[in-house]
């Protein structure tokens, strides 16, 4: 009995291997972009390590601009720069559209413990800004629900603390930039390290209801001139 079971297992294994070898490769975009989904999730839910951001539901214009920024060296992360280097604009648009159209629940990420003063400062910067320092509220551009605005402004919710603070930090160290005038570079230049941590912590801790979507195009009027919004000189 045990012996026949062993044979059965062997047979099953052999079948599994054969099936694996014989299975045709799905002709789907999701299959083609396995390199993207292995880190960002099959639907762009975001990775678990704190640095691979959620892509699902972000505006397509924003996503394509980021992919192009990795190609042009405006954003620096070697894995991503290598990944997008041999791709063209048509394919990048298709990939961006795929992630933009995904509608999956937001995951919560662990947030480092923050003193109440930092939480209050984070909330102030996100919701009201700091007019004395010339810092507009995050909500002024990224939408009242921080879910972004079509087609070019990303949502800030559902992102891990590490990712948000790393991005704000990279504007400061000139490893992330965008079309001039780079309004995010201006904003970040007016923040302290403690501000960056407070904003990242408050944003990462904010729960997001299902069905949260980017606001419609033209629904916000940015207080700064931003090249990415076609507001160049």
């Amino acid at each position: 009995m045990r012996r026949s079971f062993g044979w059965f297992v062997l047979f099953a294994l052999a079948c599994a291997v054969r099936a694996q070898d014989a299975a045709p490769v799905p002709d789907t975009l999701q299959q083609r972009i396995a390199a993207c989904t292995s880190c960002h999730g099959p639907h762009g839910e975001g990775g678990e390590n704190g640095f691979n951001p959620r892509l699902a539901g972000k505006p397509a214009g924003y996503l394509v601009r980021q992919l192009q920024a990795f190609q042009k060296g405006l954003r620096h992360y070697e894995v991503m720069e290598y990944m997008v280097a041999p791709l063209d604009d048509v394919y990048l648009h298709e990939i961006a559209d795929y992630f933009a159209s995904q509608d999956v629940s937001y995951a919560m990420h662990p947030v480092p413990p923050m003193p109440p003063t930092a939480t209050a400062r984070g909330e102030q910067l996100v919701t009201k800004g700091d007019p004395a320092k010339g810092v507009p509220a995050c909500m002024a551009c990224h939408g009242p629900n921080l879910t972004g605005v079509q087609p070019d402004i990303p949502g800030l919710v559902g992102l891990p603390y590490d990712y948000i603070s790393a991005q704000l930090g990279s504007w400061r160290t000139n490893t992330r930039s965008t079309t001039a005038p780079d309004c995010m570079a201006t904003v970040v230049s007016r923040l302290t390290d403690a501000d960056i941590s407070a904003v990242a912590g408050w944003l990462a801790a904010r729960p997001v209801p299902d069905g949260a979507h980017p606001e419609p195009a033209g629904s916000v009027k940015p207080p700064l001139r931003c090249g990415v919004l076609g507001d160049g000189t």
Partner: peptide
């Protein structure tokens, strides 16, 4: 370690890709 896409060309405009295994 890095995975990557085959190059996008007129003859293979939507290349398949390999995940990076560095992590």
């Amino acid at each position: 370690l890095s995975g990557g896409f085959a190059p996008a060309t007129a003859g293979n405009p939507r290349p398949y890709s390999m995940p990076p295994f560095s992590q």
